[in-house]
Design a protein around this nucleic acid. Structure first.
Lengths: 338, 338
DNA sequence: AATTAGCACTCAGAGAGTAAGAGTGCTAAC
DNA sequence: GTTAGCACTCTTACTCTCTGAGTGCTAATT
């Protein structure tokens, strides 16, 4: 591939990112030393090769998603963060957050504000963390709360209504039994077998406690389910690059992106909507960056925006935030009990 | 006010509700026995009186909000629910829900589906309920979870990071002290004074526990804050009666309707956007119906939709649901410990 | 006096035609 | 291999016209 052609492609993408309009040969002349005719010829070839396309004959060129791919992977020049920008980003996140959740939330909020895109947080923590506490707390007539806390600091509870009241003895037994048998167990290892094993071991108490036990397992399941949080939905709705009805549908079942995030934990990734069938917003791109805690993957921070997003700027943002989160999670002497 | 004129107004509103288009005199002839000319004369008068308006000279009439007011308050004939419909509505809510929250949520989801509007739940419960349990649970190095449960079944927790680790002794003392001093206290009675009183009484332990105590009070504050949940946002976004940008702004700060719900707890209410300054969606109307628990107001169920909503049908829905919730909350022997 | 038929009038919305402008592809010259 | 020049294409905005729905007013009818 000709170096001038690459330069032209780069110029088209750069230009398209800021204008959002098809880019003509004249506009490129500012970036590449050649006449508009030459550029036109090259552009025609780039089109043949699948990197550019024309909305209609008499319009300029738009990068195809293959064009964006090439741009992001090799052409683009990142805008490195200045010290001042770094300080600014630092000031936007809650460095004193007591929990990982709060910290990451503050970062996603900051991202949404900075980029005018939607920010995503995929929390993979439960997968790699273990149960650090299980407790059953009576809260009223036949009402009990199951409280579960993981080493990662995630806290969930579930209210159960039973048919009978439990005796203090039963409750103590159950509480103790759970502490002994579940604390320290990785959350995602809790399965049908664990359930059966515990049920058998409990013997006589089984009958009364079975419903409680089963709620407990539902709770564990819920905790391992991938948790996706979206911020800045507004930015998607007001972005004119998108089909509004598509965005509305997407927001209606955000859950669907969860599975997409499964392969986002290995490193910074940029992907475009045509690349993942699951993801339905045309003309969109997703950037994800994982963050870690004590060397173990803890989750990923992401950005959903139009294909013509300012990659050069936003990728560094995302990287900086994920690095910062990683540092903060690892430094803080808070909960490295694993 | 002439009875025929009222009939015409009613017909205009009825017609407008189903069509969404300005209603002409001919269309009214199907409802009122008079010639189109007569109806035109009457309509002109209704316009003078402020009940109807014309988008432009050569169009039919649209009810003003005053017209809707009159319609809803006196003209409208409700569609009573058939037994079959009642069964259907029953099947859509989770009658076995363990908590009030789950029950009400299922109802709001059902409402959103049935009406294609947005459903709102305003939970006033904390106001009228008391603390039934406070616990401080250590979860890691210098990390503690404060758990608070109200008699209404609301559960909240807050993670705190301290500068020191607490001794077992301290923890036990604090736990016991809180149980003795806070359990049974109405949530909204917790104030600065309570805070000061407890801090003084704690004496020597004060220094170390102050941050924990202050987090605890923040938590109590959060619990009394009115909690508003919206379902079916999609329906607002896709409703062509609304200005989309207005809806987007509204969804971006839903919190704002919270204060509006303050006066919704007395009985069924229908209000239109021009009537409450706080509420910004033009052309919208809100229907709210409170529900109770053991005779005390527990919250309100609401519906946000266009002004041309099917009041005759939806008001009975809302009334039925709020009654059903009231019954279920009161019947269930679950948590009437007050 | 109230109602109605008839008619001229108004106005939004759809469709057609036109002009301007941006950008292209191709050809011929450099 | 590159560039200037030009004819061509196609979108967009604008204007104009036509149609249809619905009105208000007047005169006739009950």
């Amino acid at each position: 591939m000709d170096s001038r052609k690459l330069k032209i492609l780069q110029a088209v993408v750069d230009e398209y990112i800021v204008s959002g309009e098809p880019v003509g040969s004249k506009a490129i002349m500012a970036h590449v030393k050649a006449s508009s005719a030459t550029i036109r010829n090259e552009m025609a070839e780039l089109e043949k090769q699948g990197y550019l396309e024309q909305p209609h004959t008499s319009a300029g060129r738009i990068p195809t998603y293959a064009g964006f791919r090439l741009y992001v992977d090799t052409l683009m020049e990142r805008d490195p963060l200045t010290e001042e920008e770094k300080r600014r980003l630092d000031s936007m996140i809650d460095e004193n957050a007591a929990t990982e959740e709060e910290l990451v939330n503050s970062a996603s909020l900051a991202l949404a504000q900075l980029t005018k895109c939607a920010a995503v947080v995929a929390n993979s923590a439960p997968k790699f963390s273990m149960i650090s506490k299980v407790e059953v707390i009576p809260t009223g007539k036949r009402m009990y709360v199951i409280l579960m806390i993981t080493s990662g600091g995630t806290i969930r509870n579930k209210v159960c209504r039973l048919e009978f009241d439990l005796t203090n003895e039963q409750l103590e037994f159950f509480d103790k039994y759970l502490s002994e048998n579940l604390e320290g167990v990785p959350v995602d290892e809790i399965s049908e077998e664990t359930f059966d094993r515990i049920r058998e071991a409990m013997g006589t108490y089984m009958m009364t406690l079975t419903p409680l036990l089963s709620e407990l397992f539902t709770l564990a399941k819920e905790m391992t389910a991938q948790d996706i949080k979206l911020r800045g939905e507004k930015n998607l709705l007001t972005c004119k690059d998108f089909d509004q009805t598509e965005i509305i549908d997407f927001l209606d079942n955000k859950r669907e992106i969860a599975k997409f995030f499964d392969d986002s934990f290995s490193g910074l990734q940029v992907s475009f909507s045509p690349e993942n069938d699951g993801f339905v917003i045309h003309n969109s791109s997703i950037i994800t960056a994982p963050f870690k805690k004590h060397g173990k993957t803890a989750g990923a921070l992401g950005l959903i925006g139009p294909m013509r997003i300012d990659y050069a700027k936003f990728i560094p943002y995302l990287e900086y935030f994920s690095q910062r989160i990683t540092d903060l999670l690892t430094d803080s002497g808070s909960d490295e009990e694993e």
